[in-house]
Design a protein around this nucleic acid. Structure first.
Length: 545
RNA sequence: GCCCCUAUGGUCAAGCGGUUAAGACGUCGCCCUCUCACGGCGGAAUCAAGGGUUCGAUUCCCUUUAGGGGUACCA
């Protein structure tokens, strides 16, 4: 068949590929610089998996003085959601995963010489390369009825399995003659362009995956779709064309793409491009209600949306460090040895990524978060907390900002010391945790507590309480008071003969704590009393009597 | 159905032919202590099963099992 004639029939107006090859010359980067990219499809919010791979991409590019860019893969018209691209970009920015190049949301202009970075704006480019493949006899038009949606596909697959016992890989339309094609085109029939695969699945090829290592995979034999009948390419073709033209050196993508790798490699070969390096990453999973491991699901799992962590008030760095810990498990050792450094200093390596699909662990995340927060100064905590509250808890925001110094003092309890408290994992916990400092005491935790004893203690203690005391004097006074009221100051003595005492000094302190906070547990009561101030302390004592 | 990937404690995982099988989270106990948290010390808990290869397998090969993924004009 005259493939040039066919190419002109199918794509009469396409530019020759040389035009694009000239327009997008090779990148001029230093040796070893890696070009990575995140290429989400704007079909919803930014998935936690996206943040995970953005982190890999960003760190890899940074480490090699390369480029990390963002491209929007909006080739599925049916699933597009307004603003999804914009949200994705802004989420990346807010997690400090800002791309160096590419699409930057709907407000800002794109950066970079290799645009457009939105695939739907690149249709003429794909057309050129589609035409090129037809010319080379490596692609053909297919006029078959298309499958619509997953159910349709499954039904068709089932039917084919029953009839032939296998799934047809070569497409029947590949043998159509020029005349037949011309007639269909003239009748206005729509066509999809397919790859005329020449692979043999009995043969294998060697590939190197940056995570999986050296592998042998079967050659591709499927006539995959290159251009859908609406003139838009599906993932594979857009991937091959864009990543070649944009100079991507490492493609980081989820493991679910691994089975289609051989098809992609055939495509690169057909196009005459050198394929990039690949890194197929594990997929973050969770345990579902039946006890089975499954991929984090957009519909069922709130934590699949990176916005969830922001709403809950996890510090963004904590989330990133959790993900980093999943990627390179030696990160936490490094973190303990380098508590002050930014995670960006960590010697991240793609090769160290394990190949198991990890389970998302909130307990571990909370631990990382608590550690992170415990090392912040009160000013930093205040800043992050108010930023969160401004958006998600307006009442609390008002409270916090009405009296900044007071709020900071509360947040500073047991902070900025060698052994800081680790009790806050996310900002939405703070209000409940310190409500007695901000909103008074709503109810007293008194189960198992003898209220008479509380009154007795407070009644005596209020007279010796002195706001001016330093911490040691403060405690000395309590110690002095204890025996007078019948409380033990020596724990051992108390344990030996508890019947000789009304309680020990710990109980005495607990009563003071209850009067001041309404709770049996709280941070250091000396600090709390100091922050509350004598007036409020006395008021709370009176309240108790 | 077929194809691919994965398999070390409850979780994340080091390990890459010979180890008392790291470490972290969680859990339990003790110590510290005005409670809680922190911190310190210690304990329990893992190589999915069965075959090979080898002087020797957690490690290499095969089978089974389990889980995940793919098999779309979705990404």
């Amino acid at each position: 068949m005259d493939t040039q004639k066919l190419a002109d029939l199918l794509y009469p107006n396409a530019k020759p590929i040389e035009y694009w090859l000239e327009k997008y010359p090779k990148r001029n980067l230093k040796r070893g610089a890696e070009v990575t990219r995140l290429a989400p499809s704007p079909t919803g919010y930014l998935h936690t998996g996206h943040a995970y791979s953005a982190l890999i991409n960003k760190l890899t590019a940074k480490k090699s003085d390369g480029v990390f860019y963002l491209r929007l893969e909006d080739t599925d018209q049916k699933r597009l959601i307004d603003n999804a691209g914009d949200i994705a970009y802004n989420m990346l920015v807010s997690y400090d995963l800002t791309p160096d190049e590419g699409y930057r949301g709907d407000e800002l202009p794109q950066i970079g010489e290799y645009g457009d970075y939105i695939q739907s704006k690149r249709l003429n480019i794909y057309q050129s390369f589609a035409k090129y493949l037809v010319e080379k006899g490596k692609a053909f038009p297919c006029f078959c009825k298309k499958s619509e949606g997953l159910e349709d596909v499954e039904e068709r697959r089932q039917k084919q399995l029953e009839e032939t016992g296998a799934i047809e890989e070569h497409d029947p339309c590949r043998t159509l003659s020029y005349e037949e094609i011309e007639e269909k085109i003239n009748n206005g029939e729509e066509f999809a362009l397919k790859l005329k695969s020449c692979g043999n699945p009995e043969k294998t090829i060697k590939v190197v995956d940056l995570i999986k290592g050296e592998r042998e995979i079967r050659e591709n034999a499927k006539d995959i779709v290159l251009m859908k009948s609406n003139g838009i390419p599906p993932y594979a073709f857009a991937h091959a064309v864009d990543d070649s033209l944009m100079g991507t050196t490492i493609v980081v993508r989820g493991e679910e793409w691994y089975p289609s790798l051989s098809a992609h490699l055939e495509l690169f070969k057909a196009l005459g491009f050198k394929p990039p390096k690949y890194a197929h990453t594990p997929v973050i999973c969770k345990l579902d209600e039946n006890g089975n491991k499954r991929k984090l699901s957009k519909r069922k799992d709130p934590e699949a949306d990176v916005r969830y962590f922001i709403e809950e008030g996890y510090p963004k760095i904590a989330v990133i460090e959790y993900l980093l810990n999943l990627l390179n498990s030696d990160f936490e050792i490094w973190r303990t040895n380098n508590p002050k450094l930014s995670y960006k200093e960590f010697p991240f390596s793609i090769e160290k990524i394990g190949s198991n699909n990890p389970m998302f662990d909130f307990i571990k995340l909370a631990d990382i978060s608590k550690n992170y927060i415990s090392h912040l100064s009160a000013d930093e905590v205040y800043a992050m907390l108010t930023e969160w509250a401004r958006r998600y808890d307006v009442e609390f925001f008002k409270t916090l900002t009405e009296n900044q110094d007071y709020s900071k003092a509360v947040l500073n309890i047991d902070r900025e010391t060698p052994k800081p408290r680790k009790d806050i994992a996310k900002w939405n916990e703070v209000k409940n945790y310190f409500d007695y400092m901000f909103y008074g005491i709503k109810n007293y935790e008194l189960d198992g507590v003898d209220k008479k004893k509380v009154k007795e203690v407070i009644n005596a203690y209020k007279d010796v309480y002195n706001e001016e005391d330093d911490k040691e004097t403060w405690f000395a006074r309590i110690k002095e008071l204890a025996p007078k009221l019948g409380y033990a100051t020596d724990n051992k003595a108390y344990k030996q003969n508890p019947e000789n005492y009304k309680g020990n000094i710990a109980d005495l302190c607990m009563y003071i704590r209850i009067a001041l906070t309404g709770r049996k547990n709280s941070p250091d009561i000396y600090s709390i009393a100091q922050i509350l101030g004598a007036r409020e302390v006395n008021r709370r004592f009176e309240n108790m009597l």
